[in-house]
């Protein structure tokens, strides 16, 4: 396939994303996840319990000081509860159904459909994320807001940037999971890589400790990876830590880059499926 064809294919897929079956898929995603209500209650309990423990640990680091690495008590509280809430929206763990379908061979059905699989699943993931905003993000924020003084955005436009940042973070989390799932075409079983990703993601996305707490060299090194864009950047946009532009640019670049790599991997996977019959 020539570059020109690829570009045309991509452009066409993008247009279809705006007008085709994808909005419908997003609505379907919203619906599918809205049936998991009791799971959401369980998740809220988990997020609340871990939120309470994380915040206690971080407050003890703060001790009697005004701030640590630029975080004061209110920013730390916001950081913890945003992290717990966003965790269910920008999923770090799980969400590897595609990997299972590759392993079982069911993916052939998905690839045979007249859609771009990546856009289709992304649309569905946005639907899921939309529902998760209501049921996974809002409740921990309410609990956190009742129990602690949170730092809320001081400037109005921060809310819009925060929303944009979530949109990017969801796409990036999806793009990574899509790539990991496709790796099953070559590794036969993606469980090892997804497990490893879950572990690294938990710590390097800024879920357990604010990345600014890391030593400077480690913080700088992490900036060259996509991990900060999963959670930390979105949280920092909300608590208005420095200019939001580098944070959003980091997210946008990584998201687009990973989505494009995902498209290329998808073509390769399709070829592999056609040539080897799975």
């Amino acid at each position: 396939m020539s570059k020109k064809e690829l570009r045309r294919g991509l452009a066409w897929s993008f247009v279809r994303a705006l007008i085709g079956c994808y909005p419908h898929l997003a609505v379907a995603g919203f619906h599918r996840y809205s049936t998991y209500r009791s799971a959401a209650v369980a998740a809220l309990t988990t997020n609340t319990a871990f939120g309470l423990m994380r915040i206690a640990v971080l407050f003890s680091v703060l001790g009697s000081r005004q701030q640590v690495a630029g975080y004061d008590a209110a920013s730390i509280a916001s950081y913890v509860w945003l992290g717990q809430g966003l965790l269910g929206v920008v999923i770090l763990w799980g969400g590897h159904e595609l990997a299972d379908r590759v392993r079982s061979g069911d993916v052939a059905v998905d690839l045979a459909r007249p859609w771009n699989l990546q856009f289709a699943l992304l649309a569905e993931d946005y639907g899921r994320a939309g529902f998760a905003m209501l049921i996974r993000f809002v409740p921990p924020m309410l609990i956190g807001g009742m129990l602690f003084d949170l730092r809320w955005p001081q400037q109005e436009h921060t809310w819009a940037l925060f929303a944009l940042s979530i949109v990017l973070a969801v796409a990036m989390s999806f793009a990574i999971r899509f790539l990991l799932s496709l790796s099953a075409f070559w590794l036969l079983d993606a469980r090892g890589v997804t497990a490893m990703y879950g572990l690294l993601g938990g710590i390097f996305s800024g879920l357990t400790v604010p990345l600014a707490f890391f030593p400077d060299w480690a913080y700088d090194a992490l900036w060259w990876t996509p991990f900060p864009s999963l959670l930390q950047n979105t949280i920092d946009v909300f608590v208005e830590r420095g200019s939001p532009l580098p944070l959003l640019a980091h997210q946008a670049l990584w998201t687009v880059g990973l989505l494009v790599i995902g498209q290329l991997a998808l073509r390769a996977a399709e070829r592999k499926l056609v040539v080897q019959g799975g």
């Binding site: 640990v57 971080l58 003890s60 680091v61 703060l62 001790g63 640590v68 690495a69 400790v209 707490f213 890391f214 030593p215």
Partner: peptide, 11 residues
């Protein structure tokens, strides 16, 4: 280790 990089003691 990261937390103790920012604090001398915890609790």
């Amino acid at each position: 280790l990261v937390l103790f990089g920012r604090a001398k003691e915890m609790g």
